[in-house]
C-alpha cells in the first residue's frame, strides 16, 4: 500500500524536523486533554466513590445515566457546550466559545462519566473487602471515600488513562466548540480531520501516527509508575 509508506514518511518528517506548527499543535492537544482529564478526575473520582458507597434516593437512575453517558457522542457534548457558551447562550457574556477553555469544558464533560463509572466499579469491589474493617475502625461510608480512593490508586490510574484516551482521541466536541482555528484551537485531531478533508491523506495519517506515539508514551509512563508503586505498596 503506497499510501501507508507516504504516511510513515510524513510522520517521520514531522518528527525529525520538529516542525514548530506541529509542536504547537501537540502542546495544545496535551494541555487541553490533560487539563480536562484533571478536572474530570477531581469530579469523577469522588463522584464514583460516593455512588459506590452512599445509598440515596435516585442512586440507581444516576448510575444508569452515568454508565450510558460513557457512550455520549463527542459531537453531542460539543453541541451542548456550544449552545451553553455561544454569545446567545447562558454563558455567552464570558466569550469562551472558540477558545481552548471551551475545549477543556467539553472534554471534561466527556471524560467525567468514564472516570466516575470505572471508579464506582473499582471502589465497589474494594469496599466489599474493606467494609467490615473500616466500619470496625469507625470510618463511616463518607469517611471511607478518600481511604478507598487512595487504596484503589493503581486501578484508578487505568480509569484516568481511559479518560485521557477518550479526550486525546475525540474530535467531534473540540471541533464544534474550538472551531479548529489555526494557531489558537487547532489540535492533533482537528488537524487530522482538516488534512483529511483537504485530501492530504499521507499528512493526516502522519499526524495520526504522531498522536498514537504520544498516547503510547503517556500510557507507558503511567504504567511504569503504576508498576513501581504496586511493587512498593504490595
Amino acid at each position: 500500500m503506497q499510501g501507508l509508506d507516504e504516511a510513515l514518511a510524513a510522520a517521520w518528517r514531522l518528527i525529525v524536523t520538529g516542525d514548530t506548527a506541529l509542536v504547537e499543535i501537540v502542546a495544545l492537544s496535551l494541555k487541553v486533554s490533560l487539563t480536562a482529564v484533571f478536572c474530570a478526575a477531581v469530579v469523577g473520582l469522588p463522584l464514583g466513590a460516593v455512588l459506590a458507597l452512599v445509598r440515596f434516593p435516585g442512586r440507581g437512575p444516576v448510575i444508569v445515566v452515568i454508565d450510558a453517558l460513557m457512550g455520549l457522542p463527542p459531537v453531542v457534548a460539543g453541541l451542548f457546550v456550544y449552545l451553553l457558551l455561544s454569545r446567545a447562550g447562558p454563558l455567552g457574556p464570558y466569550g469562551l466559545l472558540f477558545t481552548p477553555t471551551a475545549m477543556v469544558i467539553a472534554q471534561t464533560l466527556l471524560v467525567i462519566p468514564i472516570i466516575a463509572a470505572l471508579t464506582r466499579q473499582v471502589v465497589t469491589d474494594l469496599w466489599a473487602e474493606y467494609c467490615e474493617q473500616l466500619t470496625s475502625l469507625g470510618a463511616g461510608r463518607l469517611r471511607a471515600v478518600p481511604t478507598l480512593l487512595w487504596d484503589a490508586r493503581s486501578s484508578l490510574v487505568t480509569a484516568i488513562l481511559a479518560g485521557l484516551g477518550r479526550a486525546m482521541a475525540e474530535v467531534g466536541a473540540i471541533l464544534v466548540v474550538g472551531g479548529n482555528i489555526d494557531g489558537v484551537t487547532r489540535t492533533m485531531t482537528t488537524a487530522i480531520a482538516l488534512e483529511t478533508s483537504k485530501g492530504d491523506l499521507p499528512l493526516a495519517l502522519g499526524l495520526g501516527i504522531v498522536l498514537l506515539v504520544i498516547v503510547l508514551a503517556i500510557n507507558a509512563a503511567a504504567h511504569m509508575l503504576g508498576a513501581t508503586a504496586r511493587r512498593a505498596a504490595g
Binding site: E129, Y130, E132, Q133, S136, L137, T147, W150, D151, R153, A233, G234
Partner: peptide, 12 residues
C-alpha cells in the same frame, strides 16, 4: 476493636 481472620490492611 476487632481483628479478623484474614487481616485487612490498607495499602500504605
Amino acid at each position: 476493636a476487632m481483628v479478623f481472620q484474614r487481616p485487612v490492611l490498607l495499602r500504605r
